[in-house]
Simulated assay, not measured.
Amino acid sequence: MGCAISGLGLTPRQVTESRGEEEHLTEEQIDMIKVSWKVIQEDIAKVGIIMFVRLFETHPECKDVFFLFRDVEDLERLRTSKELRAHGLRVMSFIEKSVARLDQLERLDMLAVELGKSHYRYNAPPKYYGYVGTEFICAVRPILKEKWTPELEKAWKTLFQYITRLMRQGYLEEEGTKRTHALVPTKERPDKKNTAL
């Protein structure tokens, strides 16, 4: 069950860190993503399941991040898992929110950074984020059929690279905050009870 792009172009190491060097979505790419999303939405649950089953097939180490799926070896059982369906829908909901915010990048930035922060709390490191974009693209290509073009693929890749970079930023910010907090002796930490003036 291979995909020609599996592992290509979306790993966080390959995403540039500097805002000045990163690739931005053009208006045409944003329009292409929005139009294709309308078709993808019709099979949103199916895409979420396919995406995660493929993720666990191609990168079995990713299962370690998911407590509920860590010990599941039977991929057929995963396909029918209510928990996997629910998680797939949450991820697809995030993608939907991202597409809706393509014209409001500040809001998209905040959304992706917050998601990265929450992934720190879930102990889901950035090295896995890019895989999701790759598997999403592999899952939606057959759904879009002849509507799938190299230009559309490039647009989705660019969006996922952008989101991945911001999620990584959020993860690292949260990690830094937790490390700093851990270094401050308990006596010096602000006591929430005694902060009133």
Results as ranks from 00 to 15, higher is better:
L183I: 01
A86D: 11
T177Q: 07
T80R: 15
R13G: 13
K38W: 03
D74H: 04
P125G: 04
L183H: 05
E114Q: 14
C62Q: 11
L55K: 07
V65T: 12
Q14Y: 13
Q169G: 02
L144E: 01
P150G: 06
A4N: 10
N194Y: 10
L152Y: 03
Y122Q: 11
E174N: 01
L68R: 15
E146Q: 06
A139E: 06
E151P: 01
M32Q: 15
H119W: 02
M1Q: 09
E83K: 15
R77K: 15
E106I: 09
L105K: 11
I137N: 05
F67Y: 14
Y120T: 04
E146C: 00
E175P: 00
H87Q: 13
V99D: 10
E28D: 14
H59K: 11
E76F: 09
M167T: 02
E27K: 08
E17K: 10
D191G: 01
G2Y: 05
I137M: 14
E83P: 03
K97S: 12
E135Y: 03
Q161A: 12
R90Q: 13
F56R: 03
Q29N: 12
S6D: 06
S18P: 00
F69V: 11
Q161N: 14
E22W: 06
T58N: 13
E188K: 12
Y171I: 03
V140F: 00
S93V: 01
R85N: 10
K117E: 15
I44R: 13
V91R: 05
I44Q: 06
R13S: 07
L8T: 11
Y128I: 07
Y122S: 06
V72F: 10
R168V: 03
Q104S: 11
L172K: 09
K193C: 01
R54C: 00
A196P: 01
L78I: 02
L25E: 03
P12R: 13
L108M: 00
V15K: 02
I95H: 01
V132F: 13
R77C: 09
L84P: 07
T149S: 15
T158F: 12
K38L: 14
F94N: 05
F69Y: 14
E175N: 12
R101T: 09
T180L: 13
L166R: 08
I95T: 09
K82W: 09
G48E: 06
R101F: 12
L108W: 00
K193H: 07
A4D: 12
K127V: 12
Y129T: 03
E146K: 09
W156P: 06
T180S: 12
H87Y: 11
R13T: 07
P125M: 04
V140Q: 01
W156R: 08
Q41M: 13
Q169F: 06
L102P: 04
L75S: 09
G176Q: 14
F67K: 14
N194V: 03
I50P: 00
V91N: 03
H181W: 10
D43S: 15
R179E: 12
S98T: 15
E17Q: 12
I163G: 00
S118A: 07
T180N: 10
H59F: 13
A86T: 13
M32C: 10
E188M: 11
T80H: 14
F136Y: 15
S81Y: 10
L8D: 10
L166A: 02
I49E: 06
S6G: 04
R121S: 03
E83I: 11
R179M: 12
L111A: 03
L183K: 09
K63E: 09
R54F: 01
A86I: 05
F56Q: 09
C138V: 02
R19V: 10
K117R: 15
Q41K: 15
Q41N: 11
K187S: 11
